[in-house]
């Protein structure tokens, strides 16, 4: 099996080391989430099995334990995604405040269903659970930014602003 060093660049490994150092010795696996995030960002927003195996190797974890984490959290992607990932919350507060309408609008405008990616690979639409912004529901997240109190017009504005 290829080792982490074969697959991951030295600079990424150095970044991961910084996180490992935050935890007590012998608890390397505590760094699995930041490691997944780093590696995913470097790979165009998604994780391959090979990359996850490399992380497992580097953190001394069974590969399945890395898959468990990567498949549990919605911020990790196991398939390629578009340039912008639109994560729409449809949990209770957002639903009560009209997330259905936002989803319908997004689906129409982008011509894709939840979970889909536009053919130009620009947008991926993803349904997520509560992102803890219920106070300003409905909301979605693109990249690291939250967009709150959404209306169809506001959605258009936001999407128009993305090249």
């Amino acid at each position: 099996m290829a080792t982490a060093q074969d697959i991951l660049s030295a600079s990424i490994l150095a970044e991961i080391d910084k996180y490992i150092a935050k935890y007590p010795a012998g608890r390397k696996q505590s760094a699995v989430m930041p490691a997944l995030t780093l590696v995913q960002d470097h790979n165009g927003g998604w994780l391959t099995t090979q990359l996850m195996d490399a992380i497992a190797d580097y953190l001394d974890m069974p590969p399945i334990a890395v898959y468990e984490v990567a498949s549990f959290y919605s911020m990790y992607e196991l398939k390629p995604v578009g340039k912008y990932k639109v994560c729409v919350c449809t949990n209770v507060s957002c639903m009560l405040c009209g997330s259905d309408e936002i989803v319908a609008h997004l689906e129409k405008r982008l011509g894709i269903k939840l979970g889909g990616t536009t053919s130009d690979n620009k947008f991926t639409l993803k349904e997520v659970e509560c992102l803890a912004a219920c106070g300003n529901a409905p909301m979605f997240q693109i990249g690291r930014d939250y967009h709150e109190n959404l209306t169809p017009e506001k959605v258009d504005q936001i999407l128009d602003g993305l090249e």
Binding site: T49, P62, P63, I64, A65, Y67, E68, S71, F72
Partner: peptide, 25 residues
């Protein structure tokens, strides 16, 4: 698998209703 067999081949992937038990590969 983890604690007795010492081989962690099974795991729980996904979450909630989408949780799956099994060998990921």
């Amino acid at each position: 698998g983890t604690e007795v067999a010492g081989i962690r081949e099974m795991g729980a992937t996904g979450r909630g209703e989408n949780t799956r038990i099994g060998t990921y590969i």
